[in-house]
């Protein structure tokens, strides 16, 4: 057995070795280099560290991916609670009722539409104008990160068309303009195959 309970026969404590493993500091480095007891105990602790890393890897894999439903549910709750944004009125059928949408729901919609187009990821998204006043002109500003090698020409028009349709369907905003700006060009990772092209409508 290379690991005793507390202190090694050479008189050094296992606590010192455990700390050395984390910080690289030990009161007597020369002793450590030459003491077989210390070296054996250290090797045992290092094996444990490696096994712990393997354990963590399995646990992360078991916890799932960032694209799984549990993560989506958490992000949905965050959107709901942390950043509802302004209140965008909807026309009530019955006088006295107050119907509305949150700005956060609309920016999330914009993001979902953008993300559905291959090679594009939506970054910042802003609704400019007084969205709280029915009929006030609103400009939708969207920043895009574009995957390198994906032609943007055509994509921008496609996205603008999709966004206009989604906003007309799900809001009563008076959308005066949709401004798209490319803020980043992303280099694909070698390991990640490029997103396949989808047939144009």
């Amino acid at each position: 057995m290379s690991i005793p309970d507390r202190n090694l026969e050479c008189g050094h404590s296992l606590e010192e070795l455990s700390t050395y493993l984390d910080t690289g500091d030990i009161p007597d480095p020369h002793h450590l280099a030459e003491c077989p007891d210390c070296q054996a105990a250290l090797a045992s602790l290092r094996n444990l560290k490696v096994l712990g890393t393997e354990f963590l890897g399995e646990e992360i894999a078991a916890a799932g991916k960032g694209t799984d439903d549990w993560m989506q549910a958490i992000l949905d709750n965050l959107r709901l609670e942390v950043r509802p944004g302004r209140t965008i009125p909807l026309r009530p059928e019955h006088p006295g009722d107050t119907l509305s949408e949150t700005e956060g729901a609309i920016t999330a919609l914009v993001r979902a539409v953008g993300d559905s187009i291959p090679g594009i990821a939506v970054g910042k998204c802003r609704l400019r104008g007084d969205v709280t006043v029915p009929g006030a002109p609103v400009t939708v500003e969207v920043q895009l990160a574009v995957l390198y090698g994906h032609p943007m020409l055509g994509r921008a028009d496609e996205l603008r068309e999709h966004l206009a349709a989604a906003l007309a369907r799900h809001t009563e905003l008076n959308v005066a303009a949709i401004d798209l700006a490319v803020s980043d060009v992303l280099q694909p990772r070698p390991a990640t195959p490029p997103t396949p092209e989808e047939p144009q409508p």
Binding site: D76, R79, L80, P84, T87, L90, H94, G96, D97, T98, L99, S100, E101, T102, G104, A105, I106, A108, L109, A112, V113, S116, H162, A165, A166, R169, H170
Partner: peptide
């Protein structure tokens, strides 16, 4: 009087 707020729009996009 009813107060309804849409806080999320989800699902496949048309």
């Amino acid at each position: 009087t009813v107060n309804v707020q849409v806080a999320a729009i989800s699902g496949p996009l048309p």
